[in-house]
């Protein structure tokens, strides 16, 4: 009777260990697949929460200052004043965009900038 009890417990212990290992294996496989998808889909390049790409403090301050909270109402009358307001706020937004001079400038990867002689 005691031997049977001991046997049942050993088998139970083994099953538990196998369950644990199986769970870890599934977790590893699932994580690997999601990382591959994350990389291949290109989302990794849009994600700034990864190490080395987090925004700097000054950048966060600048984002707070330059945030335009205007929301043009989807419904209501259309008058000259309404359209003037639209243009005024869009102008502000445009100025914020233009504050980033020469975005993705072609010079950045020029030979000169990379330290490669012209010829």
């Amino acid at each position: 009777m005691e031997t049977k009890e001991r046997l049942r417990m050993t088998r139970g212990g083994k099953n538990l260990a196998m369950l644990g290992m199986g769970a870890i294996l599934i977790a590893l496989v699932a994580t690997s697949i999601s990382l591959v998808i994350y990389h291949n889909s290109g989302d990794i390049y849009l994600d700034r929460s990864r190490p080395g790409f987090l925004p700097d403090e000054e950048e966060l301050e600048l984002e707070e200052i330059t945030e335009e909270n205007f929301n043009f109402e989807k419904s209501g009358k259309i008058t000259k004043e309404v359209l003037e307001g639209y243009l005024e706020h869009l102008e502000t937004e445009t100025k914020i965009i233009d504050s980033f001079e020469n975005p993705f400038s072609l010079d950045t990867l020029s030979n000169e900038r990379l330290g490669i002689p012209a010829e």
Partner: peptide
């Protein structure tokens, strides 16, 4: 470049969703 993409992405999205689309919806309504 990553920083620029986020900057422009956010502002272009804002312009589309807070200005352009609502304006067209309002014009349709009127």
């Amino acid at each position: 470049d990553s920083r620029m993409r986020v900057f422009f992405g956010q502002h272009f999205e804002a312009i589309l969703s807070k200005f352009i689309i609502p304006l067209n919806l309002r014009l349709v309504e009127n």
